[in-house]
Amino acid sequence: MEDLTIAGSRDIYFSPSVNLKAATGVCSISGESYLEEPYEFYKKIATWFTDYIKQGGKSIVLDLKLSYFNTSSSRAILETLRVLKDIHHSGNEVIINWYYPNPDDDEILMEGEDFQEECGIPINMIEYELQDSES
């Protein structure tokens, strides 16, 4: 099993940085997600999670630190989280950390809470200090 790494870009459309580690199951998705084909993009990630477990992976830790995502990306992210819910319900450890900037961005926090409610898997809400380069 190989890592899945996708460099984030900010061209016409914005894609997040993706780093899924096969050796550890520690994964991250960060940046902005404004994609032309969000379902294709996130399907690769969901498939990697499924294949990782099929090939003997026992746990997945996913750090989500998205500063912006559009509605179609939101739906694709939700589908990816549902795949993780299925993996969790099959007896594997799945930890999802949803990072949101402080102090004033309640919108990203609320989106994380909505994802948790809609997909039915626990998500850790973690506040972080927004850096000048991230705003």
Rank of each mutant, 00 (worst) to 15 (best):
D132N: 08
E93L: 13
C27S: 05
I12L: 03
A7R: 13
Y128H: 09
E107D: 13
L109A: 09
S133R: 02
A7Q: 14
Y13V: 00
G91N: 13
T71Q: 14
K85T: 10
T5F: 15
F49T: 00
Q55M: 10
T50G: 01
V18D: 10
N70M: 09
C119W: 03
E37M: 04
G31H: 12
L78M: 15
E93V: 09
S135N: 08
H89K: 14
L66V: 11
I6K: 14
K65W: 04
E134Y: 06
V18R: 11
N70T: 06
K43I: 00
I53G: 07
E113D: 13
G8T: 01
S30A: 13
S9F: 08
G57V: 13
E93T: 15
N97S: 02
N97Q: 07
T5K: 15
I6Q: 09
V83N: 01
K21H: 10
G91L: 13
I60A: 09
T24A: 04
G25D: 06
V26C: 06
S28V: 01
I108F: 08
I53D: 08
Y99Q: 03
E40R: 00
I60T: 10
V94T: 04
L130S: 07
Q131D: 02
Q116P: 03
N70D: 15
S72G: 02
G31W: 11
I121N: 05
I123A: 04
F49V: 00
L35F: 07
Q55P: 03
G91A: 12
S72A: 07
Y13N: 04
S74D: 13
E134T: 01
G8N: 02
Y34D: 11
I123T: 03
L109H: 13
S28C: 05
S28L: 07
E37A: 02
D105Y: 07
F49S: 01
I126G: 00
N124D: 04
E111I: 13
D114R: 11
A76L: 10
I121C: 05
L84N: 04
E32S: 07
H88Y: 15
K54T: 10
F41C: 02
E93K: 15
A7T: 10
L81Y: 05
D114A: 12
N124T: 03
V61K: 12
I123M: 08
D104E: 14
C27V: 02
K44V: 07
I53M: 11
S90T: 09
N19K: 14
L109Q: 13
L62F: 06
N92M: 12
T47R: 03
Y128V: 06
K65I: 02
K58R: 15
H88E: 14
K44F: 06
A23R: 14
W98M: 04
V94S: 04
L4A: 03
C119V: 01
I123L: 12
V83C: 03
T71M: 13
D3F: 11
D106H: 11
Y39T: 03
P122G: 00
E117G: 11
F115I: 04
I29M: 12
T5W: 10
Y100I: 08
A7F: 10
E127W: 02
W98Y: 08
E79K: 12
D3H: 14
